[in-house]
C-alpha cells in the first residue's frame, strides 16, 4: 500500500481511486482471457462441464417460475 507522506486532497484521492479501478479493469481483462483458456484446456473443468451437460440432458428443460 502506498505510504502517504502528506495529506492528499479529495481530488488527489479520487484520482488515486480511479487509477486503481483502471488497473483493476486491466487485471480483469487478463483474468478473463486466462479463464477462457483454462476452460478449454483444464481437464478437471472440461470434465465438470461435461458432467453438468449430461445431467441437464437427463433432467430436460427447466421450467421458469416468475
Amino acid at each position: 500500500m502506498e505510504t502517504i507522506q502528506h495529506e492528499l486532497t479529495a481530488e488527489e484521492r479520487h484520482e488515486r481511486l480511479v487509477a486503481f479501478l483502471k488497473r483493476h479493469m486491466d487485471e480483469k481483462r487478463r483474468d478473463e482471457q486466462e479463464t477462457r483458456e483454462r476452460y478449454k484446456s483444464d481437464p478437471a473443468i472440461r470434465e465438470a462441464f461435461a458432467k453438468l451437460k449430461q445431467e441437464n440432458e437427463e433432467r430436460g428443460t427447466p421450467v421458469v417460475r416468475l
Binding site: 478437471a44 473443468i45 465438470a48 462441464f49 453438468l52 433432467r59 427447466p62 421450467v63 421458469v64 417460475r65
Partner: peptide, 20 residues
C-alpha cells in the same frame, strides 16, 4: 418448477462454480 439451473462446484484457488 425449478428455480434455477443445476450448478457444479469445481473448486480450486478461485472456488470456481459452473452452470450451463
Amino acid at each position: 418448477p425449478l428455480l434455477g439451473y443445476n450448478y457444479i462446484f469445481i473448486g480450486g484457488v478461485d472456488s470456481v462454480y459452473g452452470f450451463i
